[in-house]
Amino acid sequence: MTTGTHPPAAPPPDSDDELLPCGRLLSQVWAAWEDAVTDDHQRTCSHCRQAIGELEALRTSVRDLSHGTEAPDGFAAGALAHRVMDVVRLELRPGKPLPLGAPDDGMWIMESVAARTLRAAASRVPGVQASSCRIGYDDADGTGRATVSLGIQAPLSSTDLAELAENVRGQVEVAADQHLGLGIARVDIRVTDLVDVPGSTEEGHER
């Protein structure tokens, strides 16, 4: 809650505030100006106007400090990204091991590795991109076949989402078999977003 516009008689102690000769508090004059709620008094009072003038002057003089969202001169994003990723690669989160073949065979693939392949497979359906890809496996029957839960962005223009999902499922199953050799029991597909895809992937920045 912000306080009302009418000032107390004097600035609170230790506030850095100042009572202008016209009886208004500097803090309130500035706040009113910033919130664009100046009243008649402020528009005509020379003390208030001077106070606002100083704030405007400050704003003008700091414009040179502001570069908006640009990076400073001489900044190389690539070098910083390299340093960050060097550390990140020491702290990978590969997920859980999934059995390649039967669990007893002692052959495994890490979930995040398999997920990358399956996401890439989903994106072969035009306009589709995979977001989440969780892979589990059911050890109950001893076959260790995997269950895939995939979230996808589908193109807004899709007329038949069920068919689209079926195509994605097909690509995922083919990739799991041909590229990984991972036995798949089930692929669950959730359409999480419908996105406007202008032909290809050229969006560059968020929203």
Partner: peptide, 13 residues
């Protein structure tokens, strides 16, 4: 990537 992970793993085995 051009190899099938399961086949490579079996061969390694």
């Amino acid at each position: 990537a051009e190899a099938r992970a399961l086949d490579v793993t079996r061969a390694a085995r």
